[in-house]
């Protein structure tokens, strides 16, 4: 078993046959059918985008395309959000400060 197959089985399970996996390629019009027996897996790409896959075929397709369930690969915006919150709160105090000054006048 090569490393890629091992990764796919780890993430998506071994429900299907990888050797006869259909060539979906990059056809944007390919429709993945939901498998109610397949437990939804969340996958992430290098840019931090997330997707929930609902069938083994869909899962394999995305993992082959570089998606992973590894959280370490995530682009995590929490630090950005932190700065956004800090700036917003500072902005609030700034407005409030000048509003009070204006009211005094």
């Amino acid at each position: 078993m090569d490393k890629d197959s091992e990764k796919i089985i780890n993430i998506c399970g071994s429900e299907g046959d990888l050797d006869s996996f259909p060539d979906i390629g990059s056809d944007p019009n390919y429709v993945f059918k939901n498998d109610p027996l397949f437990e939804t897996v969340a996958l992430y790409d290098l840019e931090g985008n997330a997707i929930n896959v609902n069938s083994w075929i869909e899962c394999v397709h995305y993992v082959k395309g570089g998606w992973s369930n590894n959280h370490l690969l995530l682009v995590n915006s929490e630090k950005d959000i932190f700065f956004f919150i800090v700036i917003s709160i500072s902005f609030y105090f700034f407005i409030r400060f000048f509003n009070k000054k204006y009211e005094k006048k």
Partner: peptide, 27 residues
Amino acid sequence: TNVQDINCFGKIMGMDLVSGKFYMYVG
């Protein structure tokens, strides 16, 4: 659907068709 990347807030994160009904995921 909860997304880590702030750029995906308010974006479509996938779509499914189950029993004739569409389910669209919003970040």
